[in-house]
Design a protein around this nucleic acid. Structure first.
Lengths: 242, 242
DNA sequence: TCTACTCGGGTACAGTGTTCGCAGTAATGG
DNA sequence: CCATTACTGCGAACACTGTACCCGAGTAGA
């Protein structure tokens, strides 16, 4: 791989001369995503991907310069899932809400995304499409371009950050190898101790009085509430139309 | 380590019988943080920590059941940095803003946090302190407890999510091993190509017309703007005082 | 003092990402 | 049509990783 220093997306897949490659980057990426979805990001190794595809491990390096490249491709591949169809409807609030919910759904489908997103800027073609899309929803509002990126950034920040919080426990349970019940059992005595110590009166109130955390759709409702407030914030600061 | 299934923070550090341990968990955690700060999270290995402390690698497992335990401890240790002094001033907006900025500063000091936070619920004693603290700032407002956690969750989600975006490129550059300039050089031809292709008119506008991305303090200002809008959203929905 | 327990850590093992070199194959230039 | 060239797949090897095992040494309580 002579041009390993170049960005993955700017590197041609086929060179043209020798025998035709038997695999494609997309195929490898799809296999990797399937593994990460089913067994978690820790289970994703080059050997595992090779086994899944029935090839030798070293063969993968004909397509990718490094595992990092593969991770970049995985992230961009899933970005295609929420950069898709829905176009501006005219109601910017609806549009942004839809975008946020789609983005959250994608993360739920691929929990490993949150681990990869840190330290990996989204510059793949599909990610760029998604950003273009989000900007389009805001275009009719009359914000200037600087504010527009800020709105999009803020929205994405909220969605990403919220989803991370949502998935953290879920992933911790999976990684621990035990079931949800055993995980809870291992943690509740500690939490009880903290609450009983009395130095966290408000946390105690949360654990005792709050309804939301105990509700099945708590994450759902929390997300909705936070999102609406965020949209309220922008709505209260719309530019004055000329 | 007989009780490896128990939570780290609930496990006694010393057993009481044999010779006194020569290291402490805090010491090990501090060394690990120092390494991660200086050389990145990828450079953090058990052997590296052991070398730093001048001990054998296997010795670390007298204090920790696994590397995951160490990562948990690292996260909780830095959580102490922003769970600290500033108490409610009476102005909830100021309080939340301070909290957000402190939290962001902590993440900037320890960029590896963002990689670890995904898949690792913050349940350490210091994280709990920080949450209690944030709730205290909201207490006088008259929200009910369910809304209060939502506000705190939303704020943290925004800060985390925004910081991840901020640090992603920075981390990518560091991991690539080359300097910032080389990294830019490797990416600009690709971005130029995308813009020239013409299917991303709004992105093109961002790259050409926007001032914010080119400003030195762009991340700073974006964060401030987003945060203020978020606070606006909650301010517009304060509970009616009885 | 004796015993039962811990502590430190060398060694070993399974698994990781990645490189090297080689055999085989397909398109290209003469 | 054939030699050349540039590629492909991949077994083997290297330098690393997290961690289990086992040992001698040391100390607290009986």
């Amino acid at each position: 791989m002579d041009d390993a220093h170049t960005v993955v997306w700017n590197r041609p897949e086929r060179a043209g001369k020798g025998p035709a490659p038997s695999r494609t980057r997309a195929e490898i990426t799809a296999a990797a995503i399937a593994i990460a979805d089913a067994e978690g990001i820790d289970a994703l190794s080059m050997r595992r991907v090779a086994k899944e595809l029935g090839t030798g491990t070293a063969s993968l390096y004909r397509y990718l310069a490094s595992k990092d490249d593969l991770l970049d491709l995985m992230l961009d591949a899933v970005a295609a899932e929420d950069g898709g169809p829905p176009a501006p409807t005219g109601d910017w609030r609806d549009d942004l809400r839809t975008l946020a919910y789609r983005s959250r759904a994608t993360i739920h489908r691929h929990p490993w995304m949150t681990s990869l997103a840190a330290g990996r800027p989204s510059l793949g073609p599909n990610s760029l499409d998604a950003t273009e899309h989000a900007l389009a929803a805001l275009d009719p509002l009359g914000f200037d371009i600087d504010i527009m990126i800020t709105v999009v950034d803020t929205l994405h920040a909220f969605v990403r950050g919220y989803a991370i919080g949502e998935l953290a426990q879920q992933e911790a349970v999976r990684r621990s190898g035990v079931g949800n019940q055993e995980w809870m059992d291992a943690h509740t005595p500690y939490l009880d101790k903290v609450v009983k110590a009395g130095r966290h009166p408000l946390l105690a109130r949360v654990i005792r009085d709050a309804e939301l955390p105990h509700a099945a759709d708590s994450a759902e409702r929390g997300f909705e509430l936070g999102l609406e407030r965020l949209l309220d914030g922008w709505e209260a600061n719309l530019p004055v139309r000329p």
